[in-house]
């Protein structure tokens, strides 16, 4: 079985995003960028499935600027076999990303597509579900555990009420949640090796996908700022404050 894994280059998890003064977006100039943390988990899961003998090949895909090549090299260094960069300088919305991934899935015929459940940049949480819809295949979102057996995959999902299990017929799309696994660090030899792994460059037009946005961002603003309040000296003072709130 082949696994397709999608990765996105986003602002690093530890960077506090700043809104541009002109309100057109978030300032990404000279900001550290990394692989979306959920996508790292997806790559790791793909590798573990291959290690268990459930997958033969892992193809990593990214849709983004030329620099997304670095993100793909990271996936290759972790253990993906080859990569496809669909290069565009435009911001591509989840629906268009899903359409491009659908076209790639048509070509590659993966048994399983793994993606992070959301990108920590726009927090949309849509792409995997949209891809599954376009492929006409089942979806296992917010995966906490993934078990491939024969022609099906069992996914334990993190849901509002706890954990839920679904069994999906392959091919299927799975989106990863935080506790599915802990991604490995790429070793130096593997980082070197990744440089010579195949990476093919494409454009959205190669897949016949129109990436014109459907949503127009009118403005981006700072959220209301919360002011720090008071510090109390001891528990008695805290008790008085809590009682004043009328909850005890």
């Amino acid at each position: 079985m082949k696994i397709l894994v999608a990765v996105k280059r986003v602002i690093d998890y530890n960077v506090k995003p700043r809104v541009k003064a002109d309100g057109t977006g978030v300032d990404l100039a000279n900001v550290k960028m990394s692989m979306n943390p959920f996508d790292e988990i997806a790559v790791e899961e793909a590798i573990r499935l291959r290690e268990k003998g459930k997958a033969a090949e892992i193809v990593a895909v990214s849709i983004g600027p030329a620099k997304a090549q670095e993100t793909l090299r990271t996936a290759l260094a972790m253990g993906a076999d080859r990569a496809i960069l669909v290069e565009t300088e435009d911001e591509v919305e989840p629906l268009a990303v899903a359409k491009i991934l659908k076209a790639i899935a048509d070509e590659e015929q993966p048994g399983l597509v793994l993606l992070g459940k959301q990108a920590i940049s726009d927090d949309s949480n849509q792409t995997g579900q949209m891809l599954a819809a376009l492929m006409g295949r089942p979806q296992g979102t917010f995966a906490n555990a993934v078990e491939v057996e024969g022609d099906s995959v069992t996914v334990k999902r993190e849901v509002d009420g706890g954990l839920e299990t679904v069994k999906l017929t392959l091919p299927a799309v799975v989106t990863t949640d935080l506790r599915l696994n802990e991604p490995r660090y790429a070793s130096l030899p593997n980082i070197m090796k990744a440089k010579s792994k195949p990476l093919s460059a494409k454009t959205p037009a190669d897949y016949g996908v129109d990436t014109a946005p459907r949503l127009k961002t009118l403005k981006v603003s700072e959220p209301p700022v919360r002011q720090a309040g008071v510090k109390v000296a001891d528990v008695d003072e805290l008790v008085a404050k809590i009682k004043a709130l009328g909850i005890a």
């Binding site: 809104v19 978030v26 920590i120 726009d122 127009k216 961002t217 403005k219 981006v220 603003s221 959220p223």
Partner: peptide, 11 residues
């Protein structure tokens, strides 16, 4: 967006 560090107005 961005974990609530920015609010986007979208149409």
């Amino acid at each position: 967006i961005y974990a609530g560090n920015a609010i986007a107005t979208v149409e």
